[in-house]
Design a protein around this nucleic acid. Structure first.
Lengths: 145, 145
DNA sequence: GCAGCATGGTTGGAAAATCAAACTGACTAT
DNA sequence: ATAGTCAGTTTGATTTTCCAACCATGCTGC
């Protein structure tokens, strides 16, 4: 996909979820809106593009299509494990958007299981310290983000 | 941008960094490759599109353009605070790509300041428990991701 | 001075992706 | 019979993207 660039899992990931509308469609599915029309309405994507995006998300294992009605056959889109694993990334992106893009108060607010309002933070699974720009080294290439 | 869809900071964030090549350009800048030609080479983006992307990233406050040579005037692209705040998201995306997209071993491996190989994890800043699908509730709309 | 080189873009035309709206087909509800 | 729902597909016009080549600026060697 990014044929000329670095061999990199960011590029690979974006090959799956990086096209326009893909992440918004996934947002809807994770929010529980699993039917085509609802996803179309809530994202604003045109229906043909949405159909294409959902097809590739299914093909790449982020969503599955499940029959919820035989006659006529109707399918809904359900997140796979890979799809659910994107939930934290979407929450982190929400937080970033709240801070640096959205004017005014955050349009959505989240509560964590602990009862507090969610402020997501990326930490190292080993030392539990925050992972931020400059706390990380790319093995073989020197200090970076 | 997503005029028809939900009012949502994910959509707002994607309006800034969601276009093709934007995140790969940011990856390069965060990796320390701050010059146009290097970014073009390492991403594989065509030069005109890259110029447009860098312009919008600068306009939206993710990067700044800094003069590093007077004669001839030459600029390099440096991440702002907002740009650095995307570093954890890129690392999380790398992790997701490693797990669910990239075939074979991860193309990059990261070491955290603590000395361990980085396994990033999103946690709640308050209770320090992992934030995953199903541990979070959208205030006003019921349990979701 | 002048050719050649490097950097950081811009330009033009073809190819591909996107858009909104209409359409299809199989049903359901009144 | 008429209207409406749902999940797409088709259509035709508009936008974006891609690629290669070109341009502008200034520097370096001769």
């Amino acid at each position: 996909m990014a044929a000329g660039g670095r061999d990199c899992s960011i590029a690979n990931a974006l090959g799956v979820i990086g096209e326009r509308w893909s992440l918004l469609a996934l947002r809807e599915v994770l929010l529980g809106e699993r039917r085509f029309d609802q996803i179309a309405r809530n994202t604003g994507a045109s229906r043909d593009i949405l159909a294409a995006r959902l097809r590739t998300l299914v093909a790449r294992g982020v969503l599955t299509r499940q029959l919820y009605e035989q006659h006529p056959p109707r399918y809904e889109y359900v997140p796979t494990e890979a799809g659910q694993a994107l939930a934290p990334i979407l929450l982190a992106l929400t937080d970033w958007g709240d801070r640096y893009v959205t004017d005014g108060p955050p349009p959505t607010r989240w509560e964590h299981d602990c009862g507090a309002e969610l402020e997501p933070e990326l930490v190292c699974r080993h030392c539990h310290a925050p992972v931020a720009a400059g706390t990380t080294r790319l093995l073989r290439l020197g200090r970076v983000f």
